[in-house]
Every structure is written in structure tokens, then in C-alpha cells.
Write a protein that binds this DNA or RNA. Structure first.
Lengths: 217, 217
DNA sequence: GTCTATACGAGGATAGAC
DNA sequence: GTCTATCCTCGTATAGAC
């Protein structure tokens, strides 16, 4: 924490010589960079600049750009994973379990609004290795199982559970990936990622999922 | 069309000296490259190789990588635009108009399965200029208007029409962007982009939209 | 119109001083 | 542990021959 005065002329100087500070700073900066540019187009130089460290630090702590990327992915997926685990709360009806899960997933995304874009980019550009390695299957598989259960119980309408799961994940995540464009739509254009907009998004998605999956009367 | 025998040693030779062939070939190759890598990470060399032309041709016909990208975007958006125009067929009920539009949008995407990824990447990485320049506003605005009309008429449930429009576009497009990952899900894993899967996706989305927007009874 | 050769810059990665 | 300097590859773009 020694407040070494930056000398102003050269680039920044050791504001802290401490991995407890440097590593999280790099991860946070990398998250932003990878979320907007994807892996290949991301620049280690930009990450270093944003983290206020020198480029070499990235390779010192993460060996390679790829290593840093994987660390970022892992970090971004954790909240999703937790949302998933918490929603195993068994004896809920399929409907309640699904809506609870969606609510938690949306909360996790709201907390880390860049995560959906990171995974979207990884899906489009990657070849599925990270998807596998991170154990992202459950995200779809468990929703699918939940849907299957609810359909059998007559709570949900008949549908293909696999596609149902995909559609639900898409409803939650698409908004965050499109936020950049959405902010340019005419009309009352408040930032799509501010608290108010996110709350609205969550409410709308939950309603859409509830109505869209419910059994016909 | 002169079948100049490729001499095998040097790189490919003028299979045709004709912009009628070269330009579309470049555009098709560029579409694939930009859809998987985005703008910055796309390589003109890869595009040229895939199109079976020399790199210089890209700059000859499109001046710059950016110029090529814009041409690809424009080309990819056309089918969406047409789907939109055709669904103005006035005197339909809001419900029928919406479902018809969704059906056409899905058909347009199925025909050009890379388009959603291109626009997704442009949304995440771009700063909205292309979104504006291509006139992509109507895609959301008109659905929004349609929803508003249907809500007023009591056909649709109460909802925020802007978010409703976003959710519907998301339901249609997310699947295509996630296809890469989806193909790695366990279970009966046929290619998410083959005819059968796409037909299933379309049916599921249409059902989801119909149920999800319908007024409660 | 098509191809080859090359200028020029950007960026990932490493070596080694402090 | 941190920083500077540097190497080397890759990629856009252009000039000019055919």
C-alpha cells in the first residue's frame, strides 16, 4: 500500500507490489476486454493499461493470454454455477423451481453484466472446449430436466424440453449481449444496464417464461 | 469460364477473371469469417483463401477490410428487412401479424444461419454505428408497435412492449449464436443447424411467443 | 483484371536489469 | 516482484509487373 508517488514522466510505477492487488486488477480489466473483443481481438496491452500494470505482469501471473482467458471464464461462470446449485431446493413445484432459478440466474447476470457477452463470444468463436471444461452443461441440462418434470406433472405445456431450456437461457442472456445496440434505440433511452432497466428486464423475462411455459387451461 | 489448369505449384491461378464470380465469392467467404471471428480478429488472408482468390482482390474490390465488413453486414441484413416489410400486411390481428413476422424472421435466419452471429458480434463489439446505419431500428420498433397494438386490443397480456420486442428477437436469434455450444450438449446431438433442428426451433419459438404474449384468460 | 513482392505497424511473448 | 527493451510473427495495405 506504499503510496509511491507516480513520477508522471515514465509510465505508471509500482503503486503496489502485491499480487493480492495486481491479480484481481488484471482479472477485472481482462473481463472487460474479453467481453467486448473476444479472445483473439483482445489486446494484452489494453488489459495491462486498464489494470494499471505493465504488460509483463500478465505473463508473469497467467503465463499466456490463453491462461488469462481461462481464468476470466472460470471467474465469470462461478455465479451461474451457484445460482444453479441453490435452485436444487428439491420439494418445490416444477414451476416454482424454474422461476426461482430464472430469478437467480438473472440476478447473477445483473451482478456481472459482462458475463453473458463473454460466454456468447466464447460460443460463437470457440469450438466448445471451454464450454465443456467449465462444466456448463448443467445450465441447460438441469433446466431441461425441470421442464420434463413439469410437463409430466401437467404444470407445463407440451414442448421439446431441450429447446425450452435453450429459449429460457436465451431470454435471460440475450438482453445483456444486445445492450450496446439497445442503448441506441430511440425513445426513452436510459442505459439498458442500469439498475432500473435490469429490474424491468428481470420482471419481463420472468413473466414471459411463466406464461410461455404454463400448461394451457 | 476458361478452365485454366491450375499449375499446382504456385498458389491458385485465375480460375475466372470476372467480378461476377470473384465478388460474391469474397462476400460469402467473408460472411463466414466475420461471423466466427468478428471484425478485428477476422483475417483477410483467411477470407481470400476460402474464396480462392488472392488477398489483393479484397482491397481491389472493397478498398479496405472495413469496406468489406460493411458490405457483408448490408447483405446479411437484407433478408431481415424483407421479412419485416412483408409482415406489414395490415388487416391481420396483432397476434397473427406478430406470429407471421416471427415465422418469416425465423425463415430468414434459417436461410442465412450466420447472420444472427454477425449481428450479435456487431452489437457486442461495435459501438452502434452499423446498427444505426443499416436501419436496424425497425426490427425492434415495429415489433414494439405491434405489441402495443395487441395490448390495447386485449389480445396480448400487459407488458413493457420494448422489452417484449427484445425478448422476441432474442428468442429467435439466440439459438443460432449458441449453436456452437449446443452441438456439444450430451444426448441425441444432431447438428443444431440442420433442417430438422431448425424446423423444431422455429416451431418451439413460435409456440413460446404465442403463449408468452397471449392475454390471460 | 489479376498476381507478386514488400512496406509498415501492431501485438504476443521473452530476457534480463533493478 | 516489478519494470524496460527487444524479438519475431502476423496482418493490413500498396506498388507495380504481367
Amino acid at each position: 500500500m506504499g503510496p509511491t508517488a507516480s513520477d508522471g514522466s515514465g509510465p505508471r510505477h509500482a503503486q503496489t507490489r502485491d499480487r493480492e492487488v495486481t491479480v484481481p486488477a488484471i482479472l477485472a480489466a481482462a473481463e472487460i476486454e474479453f467481453a467486448t473483443h473476444g479472445f483473439s481481438a483482445a489486446r494484452t496491452e489494453s488489459i495491462a493499461a486498464r489494470a494499471n500494470v505493465v504488460k509483463g505482469m500478465i505473463f508473469h501471473y497467467f503465463q499466456s493470454k490463453e491462461g488469462l482467458f481461462e481464468a476470466v471464464l472460470e471467474r465469470a461462470y462461478q455465479p451461474f454455477n451457484e445460482a444453479l446449485d441453490k435452485s436444487l431446493d428439491k420439494n418445490l413445484s416444477a414451476t416454482d423451481a424454474l422461476l426461482t432459478f430464472v430469478e437467480r440466474l438473472l440476478a447473477a447476470m445483473a451482478e456481472k453484466p459482462l458475463s453473458p457477452a463473454i460466454f456468447m463470444l466464447e460460443s460463437i468463436q470457440g469450438r466448445g472446449e471451454h464450454f465443456r471444461r467449465l462444466g456448463m452443461f448443467p445450465l441447460y441440462i438441469r433446466i431441461e430436466a425441470l421442464l420434463k418434470r413439469g410437463i409430466a406433472a401437467g404444470e407445463f405445456r407440451k414442448m421439446d424440453p431441450r429447446h425450452g431450456a435453450i429459449n429460457i437461457v436465451g431470454l435471460c442472456g440475450f438482453y445483456f449481449c444486445a445492450a450496446n445496440n439497445l442503448s441506441h434505440l430511440p425513445g426513452r433511452s436510459r442505459n439498458p444496464l442500469n439498475k432500473q432497466s435490469l429490474a424491468r428486464h428481470a420482471a419481463e423475462v420472468i413473466a414471459f417464461v411463466r406464461k410461455g411455459t404454463a400448461a394451457s387451461i
